[in-house]
Amino acid sequence: MKIAVCIYEGPYNHEASDSAYNFIKAAIDRGHEIQGIFFYHDGVYNVTKLMEPPQDDRHIANRWSALGATGIDIVVCIAAAKRRGIVDDVLVPNVRISGLGQLTMMAIQADRMVVFGD
């Protein structure tokens, strides 16, 4: 099954990012295809390289970046990002900023869209 994932919440503050990550790993392990990952609302904060969590904790941005390195398309909404000061310069590698049209294409092309957030 082709699955698209949309994440609405910021890192650490909310479990949405962790739940989405665990869901995606489990889906891939089960042989599903991840159509794309879209960060919206405060979710755009998940992929800034400026974050520096304590060393004994998970590094959420690096974790997403590593997932992006496997070829999964990870998109940050430009409108939500601009509002919150997230620009290309602060992104971790393997993610990109684009428009809501990308979310639309994911919603149309994926068999399921799974949303993580309040």
Partner: peptide, 25 residues
């Protein structure tokens, strides 16, 4: 499902609707 002004979800959600309406859906 949320009240309009206590958080940004509804406002940014409206932006999504306006964009998606321009597509074939």
């Amino acid at each position: 499902r949320k009240a309009p002004h206590g958080s940004i979800y509804v406002y940014e959600g409206l932006e999504v609707k306006l964009i998606m309406a321009a597509y074939d859906a």
